[in-house]
């Protein structure tokens, strides 16, 4: 996985406990930060963009919440959206069940992916072979 990250480091968006949300920023800032920094997108515009993305997940209510106050599912979705806001994003899910101990079915990932499909170029899921079953697809990458 490290090699993959290095190869695609310009547009890879990692979803992992090793890349947590910033706890002193609200959810919308965590997501907006990427485009604000790299594209100098004004605060209001980036906020509108984030609200739009959260709406796709039905989570606009969490826009002003901070990391410690999110549920596991909400936290995962926020991290997923954040990873997708990179231009031509290659979203990389690193052992996603560490973020989702409730272990939702593979459909959860597919639905999430479909909601922001327009932003994402590629999605890669890295997990142990033994964890293959919950994912609906059979071609998941192995670490």
């Amino acid at each position: 996985m490290q090699a993959f990250l290095t190869d695609h480091r310009l547009n890879v968006g990692l979803v992992s406990p090793e890349v947590p949300l910033i706890s002193n920023l609200p959810v919308w800032s965590n997501i907006a930060l990427i485009r604000q920094y790299h594209e100098n997108l004004p605060g209001e515009k980036s906020r509108a963009l984030v609200i739009d993305l959260l709406e796709r997940f039905g989570m606009t209510s969490i826009a002003e919440k901070r990391n410690p106050f999110l549920t596991e599912e909400e936290r995962f979705c926020v991290m997923f959206i954040r990873a997708a806001t990179i231009r031509d994003a290659i979203v990389c899910l690193d052992r996603p069940f560490r973020l989702l101990p409730a272990r939702p079915g593979g459909r959860f990932f597919t639905e999430a992916l479909q909601k922001i499909d327009d932003l994402i170029a590629e999605v890669h899921i890295f997990d142990y072979s033994r964890e293959k079953e919950p994912y609906e697809t059979n071609d998941g990458a192995e670490n």
Partner: peptide, 16 residues
Amino acid sequence: VMKVNRELDTLEHFRI
């Protein structure tokens, strides 16, 4: 706190 929580790593990962 950001250092302990690895939040600085997050920024570095996103090339900030």
